[in-house]
Amino acid sequence: MEKILVFAETHNNELKRSAQELLTAARSAGAPFAAVVSGTGAAGLVATLGKWGAAEVHTLAAKEFDAYNSELFAAGLADVIAKSGATLVLGAASSVGRDLFPRVAARLNAGLISDCTGLNLAGEVTARKPLYAGKAFATQGFSGSGVKMILMRPNQLPVGQADANVTAQAIAHSVPATDLRTLVKEIVKGTTEKLDLTEANIIVSGGRGLKEAGNFKLLEQLAEVLGATVGASRAVVDAGWVPHDMQVGQTGKTVAPTLYIAVGISGAIQHLAGMSGSKVIVAVNTDAAAPIFQKATYGIVGDFATVVPALTEEFRKLLH
């Protein structure tokens, strides 16, 4: 039986959805498990993590842990893994997780399976991950002895209820002694409070079929009604219409929302690879032969200029 440790990320002092997914998975494995949480708000989250089923909550509560620093967090997490006796560490394939887990895995010679979309904790631990941005899938397991680490993409696992009757034991960890060569001088906030594409539940994406940059406004209005995040194809990013952090595809962000609405995107292989893991795909395009329709659940052949406002109006009626 594995001793699971969940690296629980927070945002504004609340557990991220990705953390709730991992806690739900750990709880379903059936054995007492641990969680680790960082920042000055950590102590305040111990009881909450108990409700999610964590029997032990390791806190890195010094103010140094309020902002991510790769060297400091690597030392902190490695220390928690060693002291907790964890054999399986779960984290989200987020900006922090993807930066931190490989560093810690190298320190501990731990096995790391990254960017996973499926997780099996019954019996031998295995994880499923897309290769070539979803053109193939590999199921991986671990070999040898030592710590196992898995990074799960957000939005892939179900979220259960925070209804466990567990009083978590809090275990505080101090700041590890490290010669820090890394200094985070400043954090510049994004222009939007919207969820990142990699975390979004609904995405509305636009491509060259929108004809000009200004027409992204129509997608923003649709996204507003749906609570969606706006994405884009490589063609329009390369054309400078929108910033590159909006790019969906094999050379941009790989996404898997519940609903993906592609407008004016013909569907180059590298774009399809980045979004075909979406649960439901809606394609809007003037060209009925566009490859995007082969991946779509629902297709609309039509002009974005009339279809998108009509969608915005109908979603508004339905949702508001």
């Binding site: 790391l112 899938f137 199921t139 671990f142 040898g144 196992k148 297709g299």
Partner: peptide, 24 residues
């Protein structure tokens, strides 16, 4: 090596798209 590949698969086939007709 600390990890191993157990199985490789191609993504499942998508059912055919449902086209919606009529005006916008």
């Amino acid at each position: 090596s600390r990890t191993q590949i157990i199985k490789m698969e191609l993504p499942p086939e998508k059912p055919a798209v449902q086209m919606l007709t009529g005006d916008a």
